[in-house]
């Protein structure tokens, strides 16, 4: 095997400089649960590995005064689960992140890595999309932000420009009466990859949906925001008609493929079922019933 240079810079600026200096021959290492597997398979042969876990900003979870959250790109699923507040405010985002891999993998795997891997089936992404998360990106030209749903560009591809690094996620402040949920369909009960995943975030007022966002995974080349599904829910009491309309919108948004993990027909049907189920859980959470 060729020699690999390993760097663990203590600051983001140093990481950005090193990454730019490597001119595409470097890979960012967060948990490594995708990168190391790719290297073992011979799919990735980086000349330099830049470990970002020494950078405080990228490994911290902070709640702002207004109730928003910062989640560093390299925070592990296990660390996020141990945060005293995050799971109470964003139970759907947390459950999505905690579905990635096994207990052991949870000790390393991060939402940043999950997003940067570019898989349409990444579990944390539909939940982040539903949550309205905004990502912060740092590169040679400074910092920029974008909505999380704008980040993926296709299977295995992202909209990061050359030399850019994902720094973390900002989740908005949460109005009272809000709840979220993420459900995925997998043939097994664990250790599997989503055939379809749906994240729903709701704000309820007096039993009526005041605001909604829906994220849909593994049903198109990228994780999708499904505004039509959200529109069908807003203003409703989550009655059958509204749920059916939202479910139909979810199915309509699907542009899946037939592959070893699922068929077009199956994925399209399952997207609708999961939308209804996730909306029910999110509503219960929003109204303090779960």
């Amino acid at each position: 095997m060729t020699d690999i240079r390993y760097l663990a810079p203590p600051t983001l600026d140093e990481a950005v400089s090193a990454f730019a200096a490597a001119q595409g021959a470097a890979r960012i290492l967060a948990g490594g649960t995708d990168l190391l597997v790719q290297m073992r398979n011979g799919m990735a042969r980086p000349g330099t590995i830049i470990d970002i876990k020494k950078i405080p900003e990228m490994t911290s979870v902070t709640e702002s005064a207004d109730g928003g959250f910062w989640v560093g790109a390299a925070v592990s699923g296990a660390a996020l689960a141990e945060h005293p507040r995050f799971g109470k405010v964003w139970p759907g985002v947390l459950e999505a992140i905690n579905l990635i891999g096994s207990t052991q993998v949870q000790g390393r795997a991060s939402p940043g890595g999950n997003l940067c891997h570019g898989s349409p089936a990444a579990d944390s992404v539909p939940a982040m999309v539903a949550a309205g998360a905004v990502v912060t990106i740092a590169g040679p030209n400074g910092r920029r932000t974008m909505p999380v749903e704008a980040f993926p560009a296709g299977p295995g591809r992202t909209n990061l420009a050359a030399g850019e690094i994902l720094v973390g996620f900002t989740l908005p402040a949460r109005p009272a009466g809000s709840g979220d949920a993420y459900l995925r369909m997998i043939p097994r009960t664990e250790m599997d990859i989503a055939v379809v995943g749906v994240g729903v975030s709701l704000t309820m007022a007096g039993g009526v949906v005041a605001a909604a966002r829906v994220g849909l995974g593994a049903a198109a080349p990228t994780v999708l925001l499904v505004p039509d599904a959200a529109r069908a829910l807003v203003g409703s009491k989550l009655d059958d008609a509204a749920l059916n309309a939202a479910a139909a919108a979810c199915s309509a948004a699907c542009k899946p493929i037939d592959d070893k993990r699922g068929t077009i027909v199956y994925r399209t049907k399952v997207a609708a079922v999961l939308l209804k189920r996730a909306a029910a859980i999110a509503a219960d959470r929003a109204q303090g019933k779960a």
């Binding site: 097994r188 009960t189 664990e190 990859i193 070893k260």
Partner: peptide, 16 residues
């Protein structure tokens, strides 16, 4: 063979 891995060759896991 399109599923030559334990991810996509779905053997039951303990919780199944």
């Amino acid at each position: 063979l399109d599923n030559a891995s334990f991810l996509d060759y779905r053997m039951p896991v303990c919780s199944d």
